[in-house]
Simulated assay, not measured.
Amino acid sequence: MKRQKNDLAVAMAIAEATLRPAMRTVPVKTAEQQSRECCFVSANFWWYNAPDW
C-alpha cells in the first residue's frame, strides 16, 4: 500500500520524532560530499543500465 505524503503525516512524524530523545540525527552533508555521491550514483546508473552489445 502506497501512502500519500501530506501535512498531517509530516506533522505526526515530527511529533513522534520529538518524543524519542534517543533517536540519532544524521549530519548534513557538505556540497563536496553531495557532489561525490551524485557522481557515484550517476556512474552506477549508467553501468547497470548500459545496453548489452
Rank of each mutant, 00 (worst) to 15 (best):
T30E: 00
A13F: 00
N44D: 03
S35A: 13
C38K: 09
E32P: 04
A9H: 12
K2S: 12
K5R: 13
Q33A: 04
T18F: 11
A43S: 02
R36L: 14
R3T: 12
L19S: 04
Y48D: 03
A31R: 07
V10H: 03
M12N: 15
A11W: 01
F45Q: 00
P27W: 00
A50M: 08
V41H: 06
T30V: 04
R36N: 15
P21R: 04
R3L: 13
T25R: 11
A31Y: 02
P21W: 01
N6D: 15
N49E: 10
T18Y: 05
M1C: 07
L19E: 06
A22N: 12
Q4F: 03
T18E: 15
F40M: 12
T30N: 03
R24N: 11
C38S: 14
L19F: 03
M1G: 15
R3A: 14
E37H: 03
M1V: 10
W47E: 11
Q34P: 01
T25K: 04
M1H: 14
I14Y: 08
E16Q: 08
A22H: 08
W53S: 11
E16W: 02
A9V: 12
W46F: 13
T18N: 09
R3F: 09
F45L: 14
V28K: 14
K29G: 05
P51H: 07
A22D: 13
K2G: 11
T25Q: 10
M1Q: 14
C39G: 07
I14G: 08
T30M: 05
T25P: 02
E37I: 07
L8Y: 15
A50I: 11
W53K: 03
A50H: 13
M12L: 13
K5A: 14
A11V: 05
L19I: 00
P21Q: 03
S42I: 08
K5S: 10
E16T: 05
M12I: 08
A50N: 10
N44K: 03
R36Q: 13
R36V: 14
L19N: 02
Y48M: 00
Q34H: 03
Q4E: 14
F45H: 09
M23D: 15
K29M: 08
F40A: 13
A13N: 04
W46R: 15
A17V: 01
D7Y: 11
P21F: 00
K2L: 11
E37S: 00
M23Q: 15
K5P: 00
A17M: 08
K2Q: 12
